[in-house]
Design a protein around this nucleic acid. Structure first.
Lengths: 152, 152
DNA sequence: ATAAATTAGTTACATATGTAACCATTATAC
DNA sequence: GTATAATGGTTACATATGTAACTAATTTAT
């Protein structure tokens, strides 16, 4: 067996992405999980609905790459706590229409600056030029990874 | 509230990293989870031990950013299935010394090329020059994220 | 030399998660 | 128009996970 076929973990992009993403997610979570009683996934749903009010659960699934059951459950918890309002689409009675409640909006407003501040501190390690490049590369990688993904 | 303080999710680096990492991890997992009966975390431990035989559980924790309980459990499962051998360090009887068994090595040898092939196809979307740049940026980001991480 | 603090790892508990099976509704095929 | 397939979402079950409390071994401070 050619040694070059064996995996060198610390050069392996998927591994590095995963480690980095975990470190970062926990870093941000530290700022809101305890303080606001939100799980990472719940926050993600708040954030996506803060940005795009009126999404359905299925649309959240597509946007966030979260599992549809996970979304269903997080939405239920958030609705139960009064952080989200759910109604049914008139055009398609299967579809839910999700929006932040007043309290949900308030959470979004409070956590947004914390999240952005974290991002800013994180990006300080890259020169401006690299930051823009990185953004483009991530777009390309995401498209490619989506294309490579096996059908469910 | 200044609109600029609100989070724009699709430009938010931590979010994009998380989505990308999930898409990628699932893409690779599709190649081994069912075929070899390995969870993503178990595979990660196989991979790190294939690269660094003799690590302790705590060292795996540091290298992979996995939770120490998660590592303990995955190691137990792998040992139970005969994919890993565990002994105790002579110098420090708390420490485990972990190595792949023959079967574990075989798994590593079989999955490595699949993983590398996935990585290769993923990276096809970036010109060579960007690939090198990306690598350097990920190093910097990882260091920064680690520095920003709150103490446990 | 001994008590206190640290470190490696495991266990117990509550909670979260993924898979598959399941309704209800809407779209498609005939 | 009716049967069939596809879609949105939930539920049930088994399993995985995180937190905190724990044991055992080692290190540090005195």
């Amino acid at each position: 067996m050619e040694n070059s076929e064996l995996l060198n973990l610390e050069e392996f992009l998927p591994y590095r992405l995963s480690v980095l993403s975990n470190t970062v997610s926990r870093g941000i979570a530290a700022a809101y999980v305890d303080r606001f009683g939100l799980s990472i996934r719940e926050w993600r749903i708040i954030a996506v609905l803060g940005r795009y009010p009126g999404l359905s659960a299925a649309e959240i699934v597509k946007l966030t790459e979260m599992d549809k059951v996970a979304v269903s459950r997080a939405v239920n918890r958030l609705t139960g706590k009064g952080r989200l309002k759910r109604s049914l689409s008139v055009a398609d009675k299967r579809r839910s229409v999700l929006v932040l409640s007043k309290e949900g909006k308030h959470l979004f407003d409070q956590i947004s600056p914390l999240a952005k501040s974290y991002e800013e501190r994180l990006l300080k390690c890259l020169p401006r030029e690299d930051q823009d490049r990185l953004s483009g590369m991530l777009d390309n990688l995401q498209k490619q990874a989506t294309a490579l993904r096996p059908p469910d």
